[in-house]
C-alpha cells in the first residue's frame, strides 16, 4: 500500500523531529492536538532523543512490507522530560530487549515503496 505524499508530508514534523506540545500543567502530547483536556493551553515542545522501554512485543509475522525485518521488537518508549512514542527497537536481537532498557532515538528509513515509490523516513530506537 502506498502512502500519499500529502499525508507523509503533513506528518514530517513529528516523524522527523519529534515535535510535540506541552501544556501549562506539564503534560506532553504527541502529536500535538487542536484542543487539550480541561481547556489547557499548550506550547510547541521538542521531545528528547533519550528514553526507556516501558513495554514491548516481538513481531514474528509482520505485514509483507516489513517481512525483511522480522523478527523485530516494537515498544512503547517513555522519553526523558515527558512524552511517549511507539517505535521499532532495532540494531538489537529481539530476545535481548528488556523492559526498562535505555534507548536512543535514531533517524531511519521506515518504508520503501518498491523500486518506484517514496522512501519514508522517521524515528526508531536503538539500545543506548
Amino acid at each position: 500500500m502506498k502512502i500519499r505524499s500529502p499525508r507523509y508530508h503533513r506528518e514530517t514534523p513529528q516523524r522527523y523531529r519529534l515535535e510535540a506540545a506541552k501544556t501549562e500543567s506539564g503534560k506532553v502530547y504527541f502529536p500535538p492536538r487542536v484542543y487539550y483536556p480541561g481547556g489547557e493551553k499548550a506550547q510547541p515542545y521538542k521531545m528528547s532523543d533519550r528514553g526507556r522501554v516501558i513495554t514491548y512485543t516481538v513481531i514474528h509475522t509482520p505485514a509483507a512490507e516489513y517481512s525483511d525485518l522480522a523478527p523485530f521488537a516494537v515498544g512503547i518508549i517513555e522519553l526523558e522530560g515527558g512524552g511517549r512514542i511507539t517505535a521499532q527497537i532495532v540494531d538489537v536481537d529481539p530476545s535481548e530487549v528488556k523492559t526498562g532498557m535505555r534507548v536512543k532515538v535514531e533517524f531511519r528509513r521506515m518504508r520503501t515503496e518498491g523500486d518506484e515509490g517514496l522512501l519514508c523516513y522517521g524515528y526508531k530506537v536503538v539500545p543506548e
Binding site: D68, D91, E106, F107, R108, R109, L119, Y121, K124
Partner: peptide, 13 residues
C-alpha cells in the same frame, strides 16, 4: 548499513 539505513539516515545522525 542496516536494512533501514541509507546515506540520508547516516548523514542525519
Amino acid at each position: 548499513p542496516a536494512l533501514d539505513q541509507d546515506t540520508i539516515t547516516l548523514s542525519v545522525e
